[in-house]
């Protein structure tokens, strides 16, 4: 008989920190995550390129010589070129007012800024049809003056503005709130004007957050489908953006061309993700520096 009692070690008897899981469980969970993400993310991603190149590089490249495709590319670029700067300007203004000042109704304003994210893309298009369409509130007035917004480029721009509205603002507001107004005050006391304070102190502090918001805003502006679909009218070569062009080609059973155009948008998405994770790294570094700078 062994008189000394032995403490039995549980779970394989290995010495583990309390926060560590056993090896089999780690393998199981990592495996499950890989399987799920592989099936839902990686396979669709790979399939886009596979189908685009199914008939070789020739037919793939041919798609991009089609003037209709080129005009879709142009319109997509125009939409982003309008939506991104305007929403960036708005985001910066809203963030400055909200983060650097105290005023009544701030919480309501924050909720309203987020509103476009909670609205279905279809409805985001519909609201402009109801306002500017032939049957809309301003329809007759616009018709009299021969102005067309719906089923024309202005409608596409408006719908794009709406769906990308919050991106920059919601990125900057929490960032600028966390930074407070101390550095701006220091700059003012040192004799800097408002503009100089903004350019030399505020902007360098928020540049990564701003870039992050712009990247996301741009991705959505170029990729929006539902809202734009409602207001576009699908006139080939005129009111077709790239995502709408994908739909048309796909419905015409022109799979190679549809996936070729889709591959362009996918590349944009991959580039967006790469830039995003690069900016996240930069931002984390500058946040770490900032928290080191303010804590004694």
């Amino acid at each position: 008989m062994n008189p000394t009692p032995r403490l039995s070690r549980t779970e394989g008897g290995s010495r583990r920190r309390a926060t560590h899981d056993p090896r089999w469980m780690r393998a199981l969970l990592v495996g499950a995550a890989f399987l799920f993400l592989g099936l839902f993310l990686f396979v669709p991603l790979a399939s886009v390129f596979a189908h685009a190149l199914a008939k070789g590089i020739g037919p793939y490249l041919e798609t991009f010589q089609d003037p209709v495709t080129l005009s879709a590319i142009r319109l997509t670029l125009i939409a982003a070129a309008v939506a991104v700067p305007l929403n960036t300007l708005f985001g910066v203004c809203a963030a400055w007012a909200i983060a650097k000042f105290d005023f009544r109704g701030k919480q309501v304003l924050l909720t309203l800024i987020d509103l476009p994210f909670s609205v279905s893309p279809v409805i985001s298009g519909l609201i402009y049809v109801l306002l500017f369409g032939a049957q809309g509130w301003l329809g007759p007035w616009l018709a009299e003056r021969d102005l067309q917004i719906i089923f024309a480029i202005p409608g596409i721009l408006l719908a794009t503005l709406f769906v990308t509205f919050p991106f920059v603002a919601r990125e900057l507001i929490p960032l600028m709130q966390a930074q407070g107004r101390m550095e701006e005050e220091a700059a003012m006391v040192l004799g800097a004007s408002g503009w100089k304070t903004w350019w030399r102190v505020t902007l360098p502090n928020i540049k990564w957050g701003l870039l992050y918001g712009i990247i996301l805003c741009n991705a959505r502006a170029m990729g929006e489908f539902g809202a734009v679909s409602v207001v576009s009218g699908h006139i080939r070569g005129q009111t077709n953006t790239l995502p709408l062009h994908v739909e048309i080609l796909y419905n015409e059973y022109n799979a190679v061309a549809a996936f070729a155009v889709a591959s362009l948008l996918t590349l944009l998405a991959v580039l967006t993700l790469a830039l995003k994770s690069w900016v996240e790294g930069k931002q984390a570094a500058s946040l770490a520096a900032a928290s080191a700078a303010t804590s004694p």
Binding site: M182, E183, A186, M188, V189, G191, V201, P204, S286, A290
Partner: peptide, 20 residues
């Protein structure tokens, strides 16, 4: 007179150094 024209030297409690 706004702060930028008073020519007062001010040292903040948490320094408020420009981190960049």
């Amino acid at each position: 007179l706004p702060a930028s024209q008073r020519k007062a030297g001010f040292a903040f409690q948490h320094y408020a150094l420009f981190r960049h």
